[in-house]
Design a protein around this nucleic acid. Structure first.
Lengths: 255, 255
DNA sequence: CGTAAACTTGACCCTTTTCAAAGCCCGTGG
DNA sequence: CCACGGGCTTTGAAAAGGGTCAAGTTTACG
């Protein structure tokens, strides 16, 4: 379907946006030379966070905006006694920090799952962007709406699906997103750098129950996880269980 | 704190945005005359939906944008067997339909809880708006980020809080939002046009368990619901249970 | 005053959580 | 080369929170 140059090939953000590995990908909307130059000018630098590190600490809003260039990360919120809810997983191309920018109630942390590289945009960059490049402003809103859509889905999953359905949903969802980024191996497997605790926290389940549920699915031969990679063996069955609907792939804006 | 003219006073959208009852309220950001005129020009009309009716049917995307002028509504998603998850409640001033506009995966229904009046903006209005009025584009993004923040909160609630905490959270959350809109009566009570089924669907609980949980809270004297009105009797206790953090009120953009 | 919708309650069952303890994988250091 | 330790996964058993079923009861309203 799509076999773009994998962004993982060179995981470090290039100096110039024109050399951006992500943009080569068919996953993102094409953007004019002028706009590209503008983005390049707006970008204040890059930042990298090692696996397990935190990009944004909860309750400590920072106005900066980031685009995840390479790696996996996740957004989360916690309660005072340590209960944690993962809001969504972040993959290359995702824009991070909009809520912070607007200094609203939305406070959440962002941690890296693998070594991550981010492009950094200054706090007041958005304002500039909206004025100078309405088209890009529109794109930002698009991205915001898209991310909200993902959280909506997670809310449905967490609120109304049972454990088996939840796991099936998560596997299908992540696999599809990675596939769209061209991050699948020829054998159909994808990198899967999250452990069962992350899955439990994303799905609102306990670790133990998550494990037992995944074990059951595993024994049914619906998927396979080993060596930090995930392979979906029976997408139809998993999709049916999760009531997962494929949506037509569509290029996504990239800041 | 704020005692603005209640929008509910005249529940029908006025012809001209300049006469907008909502804008009189201290809850919304002031906007220049030019921008106001622009919004007025953009607005293609008004629409009203009776209590129980639906503004947007699930899985049937319509490109229009709406601003809820008066009334209560809610966004939801359902599974094929009827399980329903309410994503969030919509109160006056909320912008509706961004996800649709962008035609992404985010498919959800919007139903009216009370008789509702909406201002309608055409499908391609956003594009125009971003180009002609960057400031308003920025506002739209702000609203999108704010709504995502609310869904984030709901996800934490549904995924990691127990039944009692969930109910406490919902009551505090709605009461605060209404208070900010100036929709509290002198006695501190607010309109509360939702039934226990709605609460259950918003919190990811069953109807029966929701009832038992609310009954317990009621007997503790933490709140009071009758005649379609809610009064918080012990905000401190409810807030503590929910681990609810008050955020400083702040004017919100209005389209 | 009658009907329908919404709220309550009790009993029972089951999914999920909690607690506790092994087992496994792997990198480190002796 | 092997023992050791830490993180992650697996399992079992027991408890609990929440779901389901099946009536009632109250309230709203025509």
């Amino acid at each position: 379907m799509n076999a773009p140059a994998t962004p993982a090939a060179s995981p470090v953000c290039p100096r110039q946006c024109e050399a951006c590995g992500l943009r080569r990908t068919s996953a993102f909307t094409k953007v004019g030379a002028e706009e590209l130059a503008f983005i390049d000018g707006l970008r204040s630098g890059t930042h990298s966070v090692p696996a397990g590190g935190t990009l944004i600490a909860e309750h400590r809003p920072n106005g900066k905006l980031y685009t995840l260039y390479a790696g996996w990360a996740f957004r989360y919120k916690t309660l005072s006694d340590g209960r944690r809810q993962i809001l969504n997983f972040l993959l290359p191309g995702d824009l991070i920090g909009l809520q912070q920018e607007f200094g609203d109630t939305a406070m959440h942390g962002v941690d890296a799952l693998t070594d991550c590289n981010f492009c950094v945009f200054p706090a007041d960059g958005l304002w500039t962007l909206f004025h100078a490049r309405p088209r890009l402003g529109y794109d930002v809103t698009w991205l915001a709406a898209r991310e909200e859509g993902m959280v909506d889905d997670n809310l449905l999953t967490t609120g109304r699906r049972n454990a088996t359905e939840r796991v099936a949903m998560l596997l299908m969802h992540l696999h599809r997103r990675l596939a769209r980024l061209g991050l699948t191996e020829p054998d159909g497997s994808v990198l899967f750098p999250i452990n069962q605790q992350h899955i439990a926290d994303a799905l609102g389940l306990s670790l133990v129950h998550t494990n037992k549920t995944m074990r059951r699915l595993l024994q049914l031969g619906l998927h396979e996880i080993s060596g930090g990679r995930l392979k979906i063996l029976n997408p139809r069955a998993l999709g049916r269980i999760a009531e997962y609907y494929e949506t037509l792939p569509r290029p996504v804006p990239l800041l």
